[in-house]
C-alpha cells in the first residue's frame, strides 16, 4: 500500500526547506536574537531563487541568489534591532509581512513560468537535500566545538558578560542574523525551485512559522532540529499518501499532529524543569533582549 522507502525519500524532500530555515534560526537564537521574520526571508529567497534560476537556467545560481536575498532581507532586521534597538518580536513580524508583500508585487511576471530541472545527487536525492543533511553536523560542530561557536553561544547566553570579556556582541549577532537569513532564503528557494517548480504568491505557506516552532521543539539543538524537520516532513507526506490511499483519517488531524507534538514537548520540558533537578533550561539566556553597551 505505502512503500516506506518511497515515503522516506519524499519525507527528506518535504523536510529540507524547514530544515534549512530552522538551522539558520537556531544559530540566530543561540546568539540571543529572536527573528520572527523567517517566513518573510523564506518567501524572499523563494522568489529571488526562482527568478535567477529561470533567468540563468541554473538552479545552483538560483540558490546562491536566494541565499543573498534572504541575507539582505535579514539585514533590514539587523539594522533595526541591533543599531536602532527596536523590539525584536515586532520587527520580525514586520519583516514577514514586508517579505510577503514585496514578493507578491515583484513576483507577478514569474507566475506561470517553469523552473529549470534540479541538480541530481547521489542515491536519487538532489544536492540540496544532501547539503541540508550535512548542515546539521556542521552547525553542531560549529556551535559545540569551534571557538567562534563558543563565542556565539556566550553572546546569546549573557551579552553583558560577553561584552565585559571583550567580545563584539553586535558583530556576532549581525553575522548570525545574516547566516539565518541566507539559510531561510535557501529553504524558501527549495520550495519554489525543487518542490513546486513554479512561483506562486505566498507559496511558503507557513513553513517559516513551522521552522520557528521546530527550533523550540529541538531545544536549540541541531540534531533536534533534524528530528523536528523529519517529523513535520513525515506528517506532510503521510497525509498526502493516506489521502491517496483512501484512508479515512481527517487531513486536519494529521496537519495538527506536528504542532501537537511541539506543545507536548514544551510541556514535558517545563514539567521536567519544574519537578526535576536539571535547573538550567537550554533557552539562550539573553534571547530576544536588546543589547546596549555604554561606552
Amino acid at each position: 500500500m505505502i512503500d516506506p522507502i518511497a515515503v522516506f525519500v519524499l519525507l527528506l524532500g518535504a523536510a529540507t526547506p524547514i530544515l534549512f530555515a530552522a538551522l539558520g534560526e537556531l544559530v540566530v537564537e543561540r546568539a540571543g536574537v529572536l527573528n520572527l521574520g523567517v517566513e518573510g526571508m523564506m518567501i524572499g529567497g523563494a522568489l529571488a531563487g526562482f527568478a535567477s534560476a529561470h533567468a540563468t537556467g541554473s538552479p545552483a545560481l538560483g540558490f546562491v541568489a536566494a541565499a543573498i536575498a534572504g541575507a539582505a532581507l535579514s539585514m533590514i532586521f539587523a539594522a533595526l534591532t541591533q543599531f536602532l534597538l527596536s523590539n525584536q518580536v515586532a520587527t520580525g513580524l514586520a519583516l514577514t509581512l514586508f517579505g510577503l508583500g514585496l514578493t507578491a508585487m515583484f513576483g507577478k511576471p514569474f507566475e506561470g513560468v517553469k523552473a529549470p530541472s534540479m541538480m541530481a545527487g547521489p542515491f536519487g536525492l538532489n544536492l540540496m537535500i544532501w547539503l541540508g543533511l550535512l548542515a546539521v553536523p556542521a552547525v553542531w560542530w560549529f556551535l559545540m566545538r569551534s571557538r567562534a561557536g563558543l563565542i556565539l553561544r556566550a553572546v546569546g547566553e549573557n551579552h553583558d558578560a560577553a561584552h565585559g570579556l571583550g567580545y563584539p556582541v553586535r558583530k556576532v549577532r549581525i553575522a548570525a542574523i545574516a547566516f539565518g537569513g541566507a539559510m531561510a532564503g535557501l529553504g524558501g528557494a527549495y520550495i519554489s525551485i525543487a518542490t513546486v517548480l513554479q512561483w506562486t504568491e505566498g507559496m511558503t505557506a507557513g513553513a517559516g512559522w513551522i521552522a520557528l516552532a521546530i527550533v523550540v521543539f529541538a531545544q536549540w539543538n541541531p540534531w533536534g532540529v533534524l528530528a523536528g524537520a523529519w517529523l513535520f516532513g513525515g506528517v506532510t507526506v503521510l497525509q498526502l499518501r493516506l489521502q491517496a490511499a483512501g484512508v479515512a483519517v481527517p487531513v486536519q488531524l494529521l496537519s495538527m499532529a506536528p504542532y501537537l507534538a511541539t506543545i507536548i514537548v514544551l510541556v514535558a520540558i517545563s514539567a521536567r524543569q519544574k519537578f526535576g533537578r536539571s535547573g538550567a533550561g537550554s533557552t539562550p539566556g539573553s534571547l530576544g533582549q536588546p543589547f546596549h553597551a555604554l561606552r
Binding site: R147, L150, I151, R153, A154, E157, N158, D160, A161, A162, G164, L165, G166, Y167, A280, S282, P284, G285
Partner: peptide
Amino acid sequence: ARASGVAMVFQHFSLFDALTVAENIAL
C-alpha cells in the same frame, strides 16, 4: 588588556550559566 597581563574578577555579569566551567574559562 588581557594580552598585556591585566585580569579581572567581576562582581556581576561575567559567567555564562548554561556553559561549563571549562568553556567559561576558555572564553
